[in-house]
Nucleic acid binder design. Sequence first.
DNA 1: CTATTGAACGATAATAATTATCCTCCTGTC
DNA 2: GACAGGAGGATAATTATTATCGTTCAATAG
Lengths: 140, 140
Amino acid sequence: MDMFRKRCKQLGLACTHQRLIIYRALASSASHPTPEAIYDQVRHEIPSISLATVYKNIKTFTEAGLLREVSVLHDSLRLDANLGNHHHLVCTRCKAVIDIPEEKLDPIRLRGKLPDGFVADRFLVEILGLCAACAKGRTN
Amino acid sequence: MDMFRKRCKQLGLACTHQRLIIYRALASSASHPTPEAIYDQVRHEIPSISLATVYKNIKTFTEAGLLREVSVLHDSLRLDANLGNHHHLVCTRCKAVIDIPEEKLDPIRLRGKLPDGFVADRFLVEILGLCAACAKGRTN
DNA sequence: CTATTGAACGATAATAATTATCCTCCTGTC
DNA sequence: GACAGGAGGATAATTATTATCGTTCAATAG
């Protein structure tokens, strides 16, 4: 948590009580919580906190690099009628999704057993980066 | 499209005009469209179609296996305060997300250049399947 | 230690995305 | 062609997220 104070200072962010509690809730959770879940947990300590504050700080933290979104494409449903094996290039700026054949990657292979009795079905790989257009100009 | 008619019959789905047009729009698109985008395209052919119909059929097709969602976790923002390199086990039933260290997979490596001038930044791997609880019972 | 200032908070309205409802209509079968 | 049940259309409802705006608090200077 002292590290959090330092990072805030570096980033020019006020180290408010709310931010500390929110960050601690996030950092101490292993379940990759939703904003609502964080809100529910944080309210135990700050009953008067607003859900908007949780959302705002999640965005702030994410932009500051303290936090990541588990899925880059969570904002809207994206559909794929291509049922063959392939992977996706995903532009983190414009959210374009481009197919590439799976042979473009070395095969994905597990080393040893998965924890927790998890039963794997398939691998989903997203290659995150910038599409040609977004890589070129900051204009779009 | 004849294949689509057959699949509908197999699945016990009525092969309506709307479904045909919606499926064709999906299958002919390389851009992994959103429901809204499909709606906009389909309206060229069926101006009176309802957005709800598009959503309903997308769900129907997805459940029937004619279609996939690009991202399993699109429904709500999920957060990750673990900035170290790791991958995720994602339960497709309950949407649990479990970290695994990246050493549990053979290294992800590109073979050759990416198309379209795409500039890769990092690889995101999700191992899709069922968590222990969901694998056991159909009860949750 | 207090005053000051801008950033952050809380409450809530607004927007966006998705789902549910309900009545009418069409597809598939007899 | 008639019938039955699934499907469509219009729209309300719900859920998730963002914006607004007045008030409060954290950080810094004095």
